[in-house]
């Protein structure tokens, strides 16, 4: 697997007289994967995202994006072109007066020729299914639609990695579904690499790989089924287990043995079926 991002022994704090927000963090992000980063409020997840595209620089250690080190001033734009971030609040990241202007913003800044720019705009709005809204003003859009426009603005720049920084946490359930479906499609059809910073453990359960952060450190990493085996640890650091897993754990305590971990309701009901046949 091709390694797109390498984080090596990174420590970071916002001010010298404040405690470290990240401590000796190392991790890798591979091409084409959906990586979920979970942890409670204040665990350092969002700070890490800012270091991944050079919005903040490490105090110690290095962040490498496709070989570019964020410490090199000349690399910083190469890094930002490759790593796009969708932030939490849909209202804070709309800069244009229409959907078209908003998607054009990043392209204009990159000094792209008009012809190519128009092509990129129609291509990106089509991918997030916002092509019918090009002339709409931002305040007429729902939260989910605004976040899809933010995604269009990012993918127009053809990044290799999109970071969702709690990008669905201010949306209603329908908006959340919209945004996640859009990103899944981009991952599957375009081979986009996705890093999703989230509290939503149901969503994290569907990721290819999971990184758990607590108090500025990476405390676990692996396939969702492997990480969720450590349910006690996750609960201890303030995370909720997905509902099917909670049911399964309660039943295990009553003496029922499951052959595998169930992260979806469907899996759980199937396991219960098997158990019921055995007894």
């Amino acid at each position: 697997m091709e390694e797109l991002i390498t984080v090596q022994g990174v420590s970071f704090r916002y001010h010298e007289d404040q405690p470290h927000v990240l401590r000796d963090v190392s991790l890798s992000v591979y091409k084409g994967e959906w990586l979920a980063i979970v942890g409670h409020n204040g665990s350092g997840k969002s700070t890490l995202a800012k270091l991944l595209n050079g919005l903040q620089l490490p105090e110690q250690g290095d962040v490498l994006v496709e070989g570019y080190n964020s410490r090199d001033e000349e690399s910083i734009w190469e890094i930002r072109r490759r790593v796009g971030i969708v932030f939490q609040n849909p209202d804070n990241q709309f800069v244009g007066t229409s959907v078209r202007d908003d998607v054009a913003f990043g392209l204009e800044n990159s000094g792209m020729a008009r012809e190519l720019m128009l092509e990129r705009i129609s291509e990106s709005v089509l991918k997030v299914r916002m092509e019918d809204y090009l002339d709409q003003e931002p305040h007429r859009l729902s939260g989910g639609q605004k976040q899809r426009v933010a995604i269009a603005g990012i993918i127009a720049l053809r990044p290799s990695i999109v970071i969702l920084d709690e990008a669905t946490s201010m949306l209603d359930p329908a908006g959340r579904k919209e945004v996640l479906q859009t990103m899944r499609k981009l991952k599957e059809e375009e081979g986009m690499t996705v890093i999703s910073i989230t509290h939503d453990l149901e969503e994290a359960a569907q990721a290819d790989r999971l990184v758990v952060m607590n108090a500025g450190e990476v405390i676990d990493e692996g396939l969702p089924v492997e990480v969720f085996k450590k349910g006690d640890m996750l609960e201890q650091i303030g995370l909720d287990l997905p509902f099917p897993l909670q049911v399964q754990r309660a039943l295990s305590e009553k003496g029922y043995d499951f052959s595998r971990l169930t992260l979806s309701q469907e899996e759980l009901v199937n396991e219960l079926w098997t158990l019921q046949l055995k007894v």
């Binding site: 409670h40 409020n41 709690e166 946490s169 201010m170 509290h199 453990l201 303030g238 995370l239 909720d240």
Partner: peptide, 8 residues
Amino acid sequence: TAGLDPRG
């Protein structure tokens, strides 16, 4: 509770 983590 919008924007809080599960424990919060």
